[in-house]
């Protein structure tokens, strides 16, 4: 029997990205991919390879604690070579807990996954994206896969397997769930992002940036101080290491100094343009085009120029 590489994510689209990463690991390790469902089979079509249903945990809502315990019980019996999860907030928790339960290594937020048959390697950003580290972990291993780093795997037929792991209790209870405003979702899929920083003098002035974003058919983002310290925009608009990671065609940084933590969230943008009064602002080092100038003059000028072209 050949080894297995398991894929699990609480998010269907992310699971299908992770499936693509898992296929690369499975190829190097001559293993098979298994898409894992916990509690109940999800109706949607799933990415490459066969499926594995872990029966026992009840219901459709599976908390990180329950997912980690179900995966750990199944892994102890079925001994997969690797378990890959999505590097979402929930996914990081499941992966970490699973690795701790099994006493094995866990690679965090990796891309470029490969296997030499004995273990797997991957690449991850460290020091706020300043450096890329190549990491390796001997099988059996756990990893979380960077969200957005892989295309979604197309659905493929495959063998189905079931495993009863017994009931799993949760020490915590989720009593409510509220959707956040759509900000983060819009930013992740936006082709153009206009992003505001401390150069904006007051909250009301964000309106001119929002107008420009609308004129460019884009979305409005911000650096951390505007959401976390000033509260001018909801945290879902915060682009950076601990906020949303974006990769639009055009990223227009307005009044943003360009701290590494901010750049970490936007460095995969296709083209970056910046407007800042300080010619030495680090944002210019992370930009294709820079204008040293007052945003209160340059933004209206951009709006006029845009209007003239349409």
């Amino acid at each position: 029997m050949s080894g297995q590489v398991w894929v699990y994510s609480e998010s269907e689209p992310v699971a299908n990205e992770v499936a693509t990463a898992a296929a690369a690991v499975a190829q190097g390790a001559s293993a098979e991919v298994r898409m894992v469902d916990i509690g109940s089979v999800r109706p949607a079509t799933r990415g490459s390879g066969g499926r594995l249903l872990l029966k026992g945990p009840a219901g459709h809502e599976v908390s990180p604690a329950v997912a980690a315990e179900a995966l750990a019980r199944a892994a102890k019996d079925l001994a997969p070579l690797a378990v890959l999860l999505g590097a979402t907030r929930d996914g990081r928790e499941v992966a970490s807990r699973l690795a701790a339960k099994l006493g094995i290594g866990c690679m965090a937020e990796v891309a470029g996954l490969a296997s030499d048959g004995q273990g797997m390697t991957g690449e991850r950003n460290v020091f706020a994206g300043k450096v890329v580290a190549k990491v390796r972990c001997q099988f059996p291993a756990v990893a979380t896969v960077k969200v957005g780093a892989y295309p979604k795997a197309a659905a493929q037929p495959g063998e189905s397997q079931e495993k009863d792991v017994g009931p799993v209790s949760d020490q915590t209870k989720t009593v409510g769930r509220e959707k956040k405003p759509a900000g983060a979702v819009d930013l992740r899929s936006a082709k153009v992002i206009v992003s505001a920083g401390r150069g904006v003098k007051k909250k009301e002035d964000l309106a001119i940036l929002a107008e420009l974003a609308t004129a460019m058919r884009g979305a409005l983002g911000c650096s951390r101080p505007l959401s976390a310290d000033l509260g001018w925009l909801p945290e879902e608009h915060h682009i950076g290491l601990t906020g949303v990671t974006v990769k639009p065609d055009l990223y227009l940084a307005v009044g943003i100094s360009g701290q590494l933590q901010h750049v970490a969230g936007m460095k995969d943008s296709k083209v970056v343009a910046s407007i800042n009064t300080d010619k030495d602002a680090p944002i210019f080092q992370a930009s294709d085009y820079g204008i040293v100038g007052d945003l209160y003059q340059v933004i209206p000028a951009l709006e006029r120029a845009l209007a003239a072209r349409r």
Partner: peptide, 25 residues
Amino acid sequence: RGVEVLSMSSQPTARKHVMIDGSPD
């Protein structure tokens, strides 16, 4: 052994660094 770091390298994204001058317009 856990997770081992094999290598680290700085890979700055190539940017054009074109500075645009002139009046705001």
